[in-house]
């Protein structure tokens, strides 16, 4: 069996989990294996949706003790499910939870782990992963020495394709409690916007923005085209009050949106490493020699303080809304 750990949010399967599930279905089809979707929490209401993405079996570990995320408890649930079902492949989305729990579960299973993969295939019955290394400056093909193989899938890379599955429900036993660590509180940002790592459209600013307050024009453009705002390391380190969570690059977030608009970003290697996986790249920069233009599908040589508001205006005039 190929087992996919899925996360629910507001009773729905999170998009990165749906993507992992779809990829699991594809791998299961390639090897004639069954696909199991695994859920854990105080309530797994909404897990039936996994059938839509091809799950043959839907496994739920439901207990009050799992109401808050605990690394060791969830890792135990994942590892126990792999053992109980005799699964050979365990997948999760490379989200904050997925990246926390999957390697711990892998160690518990004595298994190798490939993180943040952008390609998966089955070679001679074993998983083979392709994953970006050096923040996307290179790609490593990773093979496994262990019988069980664990990987997390990078959000926004694998399509979430609908394909009906039997979705037979099955409940799993749950750990008793007394966990080593547990999440006590979630401090959400006020914006309620999607995270950079999951965003479809990113409008990013660099040193050319001159000041943190000027990011307002990027916010306006992002709002007009359904995107979120990011920043280069130069901008985050400039003391403009931009949080590190906005940083795109090798020492920040590595992103792969459909559209990345770089405003006033010259294109240092460390920034390019974080965004070169974007499907379409737009560069707006005063300096026609800026290295970012070598990467851009569309380049605008000009003053971003003139161009960006015009883009917002043009997008609104053409009725481009949130996608």
């Amino acid at each position: 069996m190929i087992l996919v750990f899925c996360e629910l949010k507001d009773g729905q399967i999170r998009k990165p989990s749906a993507e992992a599930l779809s990829e699991g279905r594809r791998l299961a089809d390639a090897t004639g294996k069954k696909l199991g979707a695994l859920f854990a929490g105080a309530s797994c209401a909404g897990s039936a949706e996994a059938a839509k993405y091809g799950a043959d079996v839907i496994l739920t570990a439901e207990a009050g003790s799992l109401a808050s995320y605990s690394s060791d408890a969830f890792a135990a649930v994942l590892a126990d499910a792999v053992k109980a079902k005799g699964a050979t492949v365990l997948l999760a989305a490379a989200t904050a939870v997925g990246k926390d729990v999957a390697p711990r579960a892998a160690a518990r299973l004595g298994a190798g782990y490939a993180s943040d993969v952008t390609g998966l295939s089955m070679v001679d019955g074993k998983l083979q992963a392709v994953r970006p290394v050096y923040a996307g400056k290179a790609f490593a093909t990773t093979s496994f020495a262990s019988a069980v193989q664990v990987a997390t899938t990078r959000p926004n890379v694998f399509p979430a394709a609908e394909k009906a599955g039997a979705g037979a429900a099955e409940t799993l036993s749950t750990p008793a409690g007394d966990f080593k660590s547990v999440v006590k509180e979630i401090l959400a940002k006020a914006s309620g916007k999607v995270d950079l790592s999951e965003a479809n459209v990113i409008v990013s600013g660099g040193r050319g923005m001159k000041d943190g307050a000027n990011f307002k024009i990027l916010e306006e453009l992002a709002d007009a085209i359904g995107g979120v705002v990011g920043a280069s390391r130069a901008a985050v380190d400039a003391g403009w009050g931009l949080p590190h969570s906005m940083q795109v690059g090798q020492t920040g977030k590595v992103v792969s949106p459909t559209l990345y608009i770089a405003c006033g970003i010259s294109g240092a290697i460390q920034h390019i490493a974080g965004m070169s996986g974007s499907k379409f790249i737009v560069a707006i920069n005063k300096d026609p020699e800026a290295p970012i233009f070598k990467l851009a599908d569309y380049g605008i040589v000009g003053d971003l303080f003139e161009v960006v508001p015009e883009l917002t205006k043009a997008a609104k005039a053409m009725g481009i809304g949130s996608n």
């Binding site: 290394v133 290179a138 262990s146 003053d303 161009v307 015009e310 043009a314």
Partner: peptide, 30 residues
């Protein structure tokens, strides 16, 4: 005990050349 190992390392494919948009800011934006 080995877990996972790199069997090949490759550079990403070159991105195709893009194009620059001409005109004033409004025309470029449009």
């Amino acid at each position: 005990t080995a877990g996972a190992q790199v069997s090949a390392l490759a550079l990403p494919p070159e991105r195709p050349a893009g194009r620059k948009l001409e005109g004033d800011a409004a025309a470029q934006a449009q």
